[in-house]
Amino acid sequence: MELARHWRQRNARYRLEGSRHSTTHAVAFPAAQGSEWLPYTLSGRGSVLTYAVVHQASTGHDAESPYIVAIVQLSEGPRITAQLTDVSANEVEMGMQVEMVTRLMGDTGPDGLLLYAYKFRPVL
């Protein structure tokens, strides 16, 4: 069982909650530590900074391959590593505008915990 490991990331994974600095208004994702950083939900909008197509996946992801991974430049400033979805590899372009969606990432095995998290798709 790895419930706590995934549970504690729920706000970040389900709704892209990071943090914002109370005076500079800088945005951090994942959330930064410190009393001056307050919870802040990002818009989920961004652009593809770079991407690759994974054909040789690691355990837990092998059933999905090939799939597309990317570093997304979020509009609030932070960058994030995530999969692209609802798009084929030959349709992805550098700089493409994308938005966050919540998708099933897999499960923790026999105990049946389903893992949901953000992926990004082309802006509809």
Binding site: Q9, P30, L49, T50, Y51, A52, V53, V54, Q56, A57, S58, G60, H61, E64, Y67, V69, A70, I71, I80, T81, A82, Q83, M94, M105, A117
Partner: peptide, 21 residues
Amino acid sequence: ADWEAFHGVTVTAQWAMLMRS
């Protein structure tokens, strides 16, 4: 582990992203 590997990124895929960039 939480912000990269969880999402199915491999080290090879990271080098691939750098190569594309």
